[in-house]
Design a protein around this nucleic acid. Structure first.
Length: 98
DNA sequence: AAAGTGACGGTCT
DNA sequence: AAGACCGCCACTT
């Protein structure tokens, strides 16, 4: 486990319910600005049964970066926390950002 | 080894 | 507001 991964997991684990963050934001907090893509790649490898709130992460444009099935799952998870997504996959309620 | 490919981002149009 | 462009970095072909 790299130190990047451990810090990413720690930060994500602290992200409050009902709040959102972005890949780039997490990358910065991990001490690796410009590694937003690395965050995405790392999250994509999380086990299906992870306890981490991976669904509270969207891209800098406020959109869900997943396709197909995964998109649906994330939308459902967010909906359960009162966050709504429009037909373009974009977050409607921006006040949820940290 | 070179080129393609993403759970990405900032800028400029 | 939305799309085109280009920078970015680890991985795969």
């Amino acid at each position: 486990m790299t130190e990047f991964e451990s810090s990413l997991y720690n930060i994500l684990a602290r992200l409050p319910q009902g709040k959102l963050t972005t890949y780039g934001q997490l990358a910065k907090q991990c001490g690796y600005p410009s590694h937003a893509r690395l965050v995405g790649r790392t999250l994509s490898k999380l086990p299906k049964d992870t306890k981490l709130p991976w669904f509270r992460v969207v891209n800098s444009q406020g959109k869900i970066s997943l396709a197909g099935d995964a998109f649906i799952r994330q939308k459902e998870q967010l909906s359960a926390e009162g966050i709504d997504i429009n037909e373009s996959g974009k977050v409607v309620n921006f006040r949820h950002y940290l």
